[in-house]
Design a protein around this nucleic acid. Structure first.
Lengths: 143, 143
DNA sequence: CAAATTACTTCGTGCCACGAACAATCACAA
DNA sequence: TTGTGATTGTTCGTGGCACGAAGTAATTTG
């Protein structure tokens, strides 16, 4: 019992840590957390509003405003879908891509620092297990 | 390089996962994420505003409103410090304690489910390494 | 006692998220 | 073809969260 308590606590602490990093790196790129997450979800392709809201775990109505603000900042654009006039595809602009790259690189750097002090074998094992634990989670942060 | 990329991605996914759990369990207890975090920070003792803002990584001005709303909901109270009339101590009410306990129990349950499928040895190793990684992080979620 | 420091609050701004209600479009079946 | 129902996305109102600048009150320090 003490063991699961410890594990749960450690998971929460790790989350707190990574989350703070996420926000901090985002700030450095002039991105809010929500914006950074959205850009990550758009890194490799255009995505419709419904699918995007699913990826981010948001209601569609929440996403509208998020995309609005990102569009006003020139990070993304809404594109028409010729096959379905209801649908919209959200796409990164050049500026959005550049912001995403800066964010991604810096975050990756800071995150790998977290594990840097572990012995190689332990780090490797840890990463492998981590992969198993999150196997079912969709990648918001593309490899 | 591929290795650190994978590790960073896995860390972000895990964070996403735990965070969603946190929010979801919070909702079940009628707590926002910020409120739940605050209650966790108050679990074992009363804390002043300045110290609390440090624990939560918030500006003091942000904390004022957070405590206001929690107080209006009857989760915490502000108590006077007899030795320093400027200072305030934030303390859980009975209702706040009860909400925290429900939140804590449910979250712990759900979090340990995450690791449940791992073989015992691997789980143990993972938890131990996790402990090392977060060693320096203050515990927002008390053991 | 005067000045600097500390603890906290107020105010204005902006972002984020939700749910209910709505408009437009599409798919399909009678 | 024409309903009918589902899907896509938006608007609107409400509330919470976080920041920084500026302010108040009490304490400490020289």
């Amino acid at each position: 019992m003490k063991e699961t308590l410890g594990a749960a606590s450690a998971l929460v602490r790790l989350t707190f840590l990574v989350q703070n990093l996420y926000v901090e790196v985002g700030r450095g790129c002039d991105l809010t957390q929500a914006q950074a997450q959205m850009l990550c979800s758009l890194s490799d392709r255009s995505v419709g509003m419904a699918e995007l809201s699913g990826m981010l775990g948001l209601e569609r109505s929440s996403l509208t405003g998020l995309v609005d603000r990102a569009q006003q900042r020139g990070l993304v654009v809404r594109e028409n879908n010729p096959h379905d006039r209801r649908a919209v595809k959200v796409t990164l602009t050049a500026e959005g891509t550049s912001a995403l790259n800066r964010f991604h690189d810096e975050l990756t750097r800071r995150l790998s620092d977290l594990l840097q002090d572990l012995p190689a074998t332990e780090r490797e094992r840890f990463t492998r297990t981590l992969g198993r634990v999150v196997a079912g989670v969709p990648a918001v942060f593309a490899d």
